[in-house]
């Protein structure tokens, strides 16, 4: 039996019927066409499918679509809603060479967002711990760690500017 669910993705409200055995990853990619979120292992190990549900990162491959009823989901597409101006995390991933094939990037950026929301001034060790659930087969991680510390600085600077104004 399909279940009727109401939820939001990147600020847009949805109301639809889903089969209970479908995952949030399937719902996002197949029904909503939000293919920025990837599917890698399907078992919680790689982090390519990471999205935020009510402000906390989860593996969308291990989240039932029915369980987001009433909740708010953020995907990588929500980082730059205008589609023109990028989020500081995305900017710094590009600038520091933290993207090679790009398969891990959406998940990495969502984990980075979760980390910086909770800890605006992370140490290198804290950045690495924050990425413990995300695998990258290309970069060797160093550029990703650098990208996040650059992004952290930028976000802090722009917060300062806002305060001064």
């Amino acid at each position: 039996m399909k279940h009727h669910i109401n939820f939001s993705v990147n600020g847009d409200d949805y109301s639809l019927a889903v089969d209970p055995w479908r995952t949030l990853n399937e719902l996002l990619r197949e029904d909503l066409n939000l293919t920025g979120t990837k599917l890698g292992c399907g078992t919680g190990d790689c982090g390519a499918c990471t999205v935020m549900v009510d402000g906390r990162t989860v593996s969308s491959c291990l989240t039932l679509a029915v369980s987001v009823n009433g909740k708010s989901v953020t995907t990588v597409e929500g980082l730059a809603p205008s589609g023109e101006e990028l989020h500081p995390i995305q900017e710094s991933f590009i600038k520091t060479g933290a993207i090679q094939c790009g398969f891990c990037t959406a998940g990495m950026e969502m984990s980075a967002l979760h980390l910086l929301n909770n800890n605006p001034e992370p140490t290198e060790k804290e950045i690495r711990a924050g990425l413990s659930g995300n695998l990258c087969r290309c970069t060797g991680y160093n550029q990703i760690v650098e990208a996040i510390s650059v992004a952290a600085e930028q976000i802090r600077d722009s917060e300062h500017e806002k305060e001064e104004r």
Partner: peptide
């Protein structure tokens, strides 16, 4: 234990 996402779930 595990990783950030698993601890959030």
């Amino acid at each position: 234990m595990a990783n950030v996402q698993v601890r959030n779930m």
